[in-house]
Amino acid sequence: MIRVQCAPFDAGAETAALTAGRDDLGAVVSFQGVVRRGDGPDAVDAMTLEHYPGMTERELERIEAEAQRRWPLQATLVIHRYGRMEPGEPIVLVVCCSRHRRAAFDACAFLMDWLKTRAPFWKLEETAAGARWVEATAGDEAAAARWSEP
């Protein structure tokens, strides 16, 4: 299941809802991305996430389907926010449920790595020096590339 929303989310409540009533899960791995303030002149006062409505949902669904194709997953959840948020607020949540931990760990890392290089979101940071668009990093590309299939 994927969700794109402006409102904050409660990772604990979302995970509880995803796993409620199930006794077939042996592993639940989750990742939550949070707005980081940072230090010095680069400190972030707030961040606005722009996205491409329509494509965002389609791309997240494609990424989720790819994870389900690669690993035996009982349930998955991806929530990504857009709009303006402040340091400490959650941006993204990925939850992967499987019978065993390895699939859940790997699928969670895969979903984040692919999401960061494929889902059409762009971060605009507000700092003391003004607003600036965050640049994509080679590290993110490398992280996604390690999941490429032969």
Binding site: M55, I91, A119, K123, E135
Partner: peptide, 29 residues
Amino acid sequence: AVNQTHVTDTAAAVKTGDEVAFFPPVTGG
């Protein structure tokens, strides 16, 4: 992106009625 799907090949086809989007590398997550 053509019709909301990433394309990496500049030889990819476009035609009337398509929605074509241009954007910087994504920075979500």
